[in-house]
Design a protein around this nucleic acid. Structure first.
Length: 569
RNA sequence: CGGGAUGUAGCUCAGUAUGGUAGAGCACAGCGUUCGGGACGCUGGGGCCGCUGGUUCAAGUCCAGUCAUCCCGACCA
């Protein structure tokens, strides 16, 4: 490709709208342009990267026997009613009407459509297992789109769906996809981690998220240095050390705490550390009002609570409910004498002489012990933090930030039952297919690569997904000898199958260098008058600071060597 | 949906307190000088001052409404 012919609108200044680095750089380097909030055009350069990611995905999916299809972007309401998600999905699902007033939606995901397809076409166990995938545009009407293509409303996603005859088959499919994902993200050049994740509203029994490690990531990953266990923050189990349960020491006593509602206020007022307090959090759920006890300096993990009690709805109780159930106002709730079910985090079991709310305005109770109230049980109910004990090996947790680029779920029978997707087994019995679903955000993957690879001059794209692999850069395009050699090198590299661009513009050198760095092309071949006098040209790797001179006869070989080295990794 | 902010040239922004002919830098076009890390000079093109209504002799500026965008929060395959 010739730079002079390609549509690459780069920008010198940072666009105001862009908050994080990848977004800024993608705008500046002419990868994307915004059309509306959360809706982007991919320009030639960005599209090249996007396609490279897509192709890596295709190759690895195909390698596992998955087959590519394309399903409709517009989907009828009826299917979504069958699965029950027309009601449940909420405002993220963009609903539209056609001219006949039929209700439709823009597909945010394709479980319904693919399940419908398979139930129509697959009749026998002989046709399974089956994994179908597509790379296609999705629309989710996000509450708050941000970070460019990292969290947009319209976005490209690879989604795959597996259908198996039984649990064992489904697990095999899941593991196949897991392997494929590992290979995909390795080939993208990522520093990433597969972490255990909550299955969320999509349900199902287990799930992994593939997280690209980056400080700007929206997700928190908890991981154990000891055994390698890693999980999404909302999922991470917290271990504990079994200690002797202490016995009552101090004298239970109410104290005046006028106006002191928060943990900080109370602990300061009474002169005790927050970890000597126990918070009583009141929740409204689909199974009634309940209370959760947690140490003062920790937070309740609502996902754990929901999973443990198998709840659908959990929300913090309003003040009215709190006063009705505890007798006291918000900020003064405590477990003593409450009639609602109470669940406590395990931390509480090992505490003694702690402080709780008095269930009366401006009163807290001190020297409280576990004998003073009744709970349904002690469970792991808090949000994990660095420094906590690992639930698997007792090691110590640390936390990092990550960008979720892939997510795999074992769905089980959720959709096949709801939509009656069945086939006949060996014995002629009708049974439901066991399903899995597997997503990768393609655009987000490109953004994540930039988030992970950049410096003050611009992107440092991994070789496998950079828009070009090599840039041939003649310093002075009006110098005939330079141009001649540049053209020759360019054509030879093309012939060798490399993805190469020649910067044939009559721009000043500085402009060319800056653009080349901004775009993040991994290998640059600089051809200038000065070095040419000594029959030398320059090779510079984007990720390295210094360039090296090589004899012009050797340049092709040297470049190909670098390319091979990049590919091998 | 709650809180905060911003809409003026393609981009970054000034001008708005005190109403009086629309500005700068970058980008763009022409000419000249430059030419190994985003050059310089001269000339030029480019504006529904987000939109609608109001106040006024006069509105980018004041008032009301509305739309859009961004940030924080709640939410999230």
């Amino acid at each position: 490709m010739r730079y002079s012919k390609m549509f690459i609108p780069t920008m010198k200044e940072d666009p105001k709208e862009a908050e994080i680095l990848s977004h800024r750089l993608m705008l500046r380097a002419g990868f994307i342009r915004k059309l509306a909030s959360g809706v982007y055009t991919w320009l030639p350069l960005g599209l090249k990267s996007l396609k490279k990611v897509e192709n890596i995905i295709r190759q690895e999916m195909n390698r596992k026997g998955a087959q590519e299809i394309i399903m409709p972007f517009v989907q009828p309401k009826e299917l979504w009613e069958e699965s029950g998600r027309w009601e449940k999905y909420g405002k993220e699902l963009l609903r539209i009407r056609d001219r006949n007033d039929r209700e439709l939606c823009l597909g945010p995901t394709h479980e319904e459509v693919v399940t419908d397809l398979v139930r129509r076409e697959v009749k026998s166990y002989r046709e399974l297992p089956l994994i179908l995938y597509q790379i296609q545009t999705k629309f989710r009407d996000e509450i708050r789109p941000r970070f460019g293509v990292m969290r947009s409303r319209e976005f490209s996603m690879k989604d795959a769906y597996s259908f198996d005859i039984d649990e064992a088959g489904a697990e095999k499919s899941y593991m196949d996809m897991y392997d494929a994902y590992m290979r995909i993200f390795e080939r993208c050049g990522f520093n990433f981690k597969a972490v255990e994740a909550d299955t969320g509203q999509i349900g199902g029994s287990f799930s992994h998220e593939f997280m690209v490690l980056a400080d700007t990531g929206e997700d928190t990953i908890i991981s154990c240095g000891g055994c390698g266990y890693a999980a999404n923050l909302e999922r991470a189990e917290v271990g504990f050390v079994d200690r002797e349960v202490p016995h009552t020491k101090g004298q239970l006593k109410d104290v005046e705490t006028p106006g002191q509602r928060t943990v900080e206020e109370v602990s300061e007022f009474l002169g005790v550390k927050p970890d000597k307090l126990v918070k009583t959090i009141i929740y409204n759920t689909d199974r009634g009002t309940m209370g959760v006890l947690v140490k003062g300096d920790r937070e309740v993990n609502e996902v754990k609570l929901r999973n443990m009690l198998n709840l659908d709805v959990i929300e913090l109780a309003d003040e009215e409910t709190i006063e009705k159930t505890t007798g006291g106002p918000l900020g003064f709730s405590g477990p003593i004498g409450l009639s609602i079910p109470l669940y406590a985090d395990r931390d509480v079991l090992f505490m003694e002489d702690f402080v709780v709310g008095g269930n009366v305005r401006d009163v807290h109770t001190v020297n409280v012990n576990n004998e003073d109230f009744k709970v349904k049980g002690y469970y792991d109910l808090k949000v994990a933090e660095p420094g906590d004990f690992c639930a698997r090996c007792g090691g110590t947790y640390s936390s990092t930030r990550g960008i979720e680029v892939g997510h795999i779920f074992k769905l089980g029978l959720k959709y096949s039952k709801a939509m009656n997707c069945t086939f006949l087994d060996k014995g002629g019995k009708e049974i439901h297919a066991v399903m899995g679903c597997y997503g990768i955000g393609v655009g987000r993957t490109v953004a994540a690569a930039i988030e992970q690879g950049h410096d003050e001059n611009g992107m440092i794209m991994p070789f496998g997904i950079a828009p070009f692999e090599i840039c041939v850069l003649p310093v002075n395009s009006s110098h005939a000898e330079s141009m001649e050699l540049a053209e020759a090198v360019y054509k030879e590299l093309l012939y060798k199958g490399m993805d190469v661009i020649i910067d044939d513009r009559s721009e000043r050198p500085g402009v060319k260098f800056k653009d080349c760095d901004l775009i993040g092309i991994p290998i640059r071949v600089t051809i200038g008058e000065r070095n040419l006098k000594d029959h030398m040209v320059e090779i510079k790797l984007r990720k390295e600071k210094d360039s090296q001179k090589v004899r012009k006869e050797e340049v092709i070989e040297r470049v190909l060597n670098y390319a091979n080295e990049f590919k091998r990794r």
